[in-house]
Simulated scan of single mutants.
Amino acid sequence: MKIVVVSDNHGDTYYMEELLSIHSEDTDAWFHCGDSELPEDHPLFQNYQTVEGNMDFANKLKLSRLEEIQGELFLIAHGHKHKVKQSYDRLKEEAKKAGCRFVFYGHTHVAKVAEEEGIYFVNPGSLTQPRDRHKGTYLVLTIDEDKTTATFDFYDKDHNSIPEISQSIHLN
């Protein structure tokens, strides 16, 4: 299973469109973690499953959403209402209730993977306004067929791998 995850493009659609053209043939799902600043009927949202961010004023999007891909549940949120800058506690509670082990969020503009109590909190960073590096970032999550390994591959907006934050984990 392959999932492309983006966040915080703040009105810039170029990289979202480019990712669709590069990864369209082998990607099972497209997630957007909010702050697109695009209208909810934008054509890109025919592919990207998105949520409301703190800069998505004109949208009537959900603050969080569950997506099931090949039997695996994923929680997507922007995180501003979940207070992700303080802790993962609110997202963790929501993920536990839903039975998710993967949570994708945005808001901080910092690409990272963190684990708490068997739940993986993953931020793809910002496509256009990163706070932790010079170039925007996105994530490609690959889960092997038997669901024993998840690989979090981070890329900059020019599609160069970022090995220092990419990682593979063994799933129980």
Rank of each mutant, 00 (worst) to 15 (best):
M1Y: 13
K2N: 15
I3V: 15
I3S: 08
V5E: 03
S7N: 10
N9V: 00
D12H: 13
Y14A: 09
Y15E: 03
E17C: 00
L19F: 02
L20M: 10
I22E: 12
D26F: 06
D26A: 10
T27P: 00
A29S: 11
A29Q: 02
W30Q: 00
W30T: 00
F31G: 01
H32Q: 06
C33A: 14
G34F: 01
P39K: 04
E40C: 04
E40D: 15
D41G: 02
D41V: 01
H42Q: 02
P43M: 02
L44M: 09
F45A: 06
F45W: 02
F45T: 02
Q49G: 11
V51T: 04
D56V: 05
D56L: 07
F57C: 07
A58D: 14
S64C: 11
E67L: 15
E68R: 11
Q70W: 06
G71F: 08
L73W: 11
L75Y: 05
I76N: 10
H78E: 07
Q86N: 11
S87E: 11
Y88P: 08
Y88K: 12
D89N: 12
D89L: 14
R90C: 08
R90V: 12
R90E: 11
L91E: 06
L91P: 07
E93G: 03
E93L: 10
K96T: 14
K96L: 14
A98S: 08
G99L: 04
C100W: 08
F102M: 03
F102P: 02
F102D: 03
Y105I: 03
G106H: 06
G106E: 09
H109A: 08
V110Q: 13
A111F: 01
A114W: 01
G118E: 09
G118V: 09
Y120F: 13
Y120W: 13
V122W: 02
V122S: 01
P124C: 07
S126E: 01
Q129T: 12
Q129R: 14
R131C: 07
D132Y: 09
R133D: 08
H134M: 11
K135L: 15
L139W: 05
L141R: 03
L141H: 05
I143L: 13
I143H: 07
D144K: 08
E145R: 11
E145S: 13
E145W: 03
D146K: 10
K147M: 08
T151M: 07
T151A: 12
D153R: 12
F154V: 02
D156T: 04
N160E: 13
S161H: 14
P163G: 12
E164G: 01
E164W: 05
I165E: 07
I169C: 06
I169K: 11
I169N: 04
L171I: 12
L171T: 10
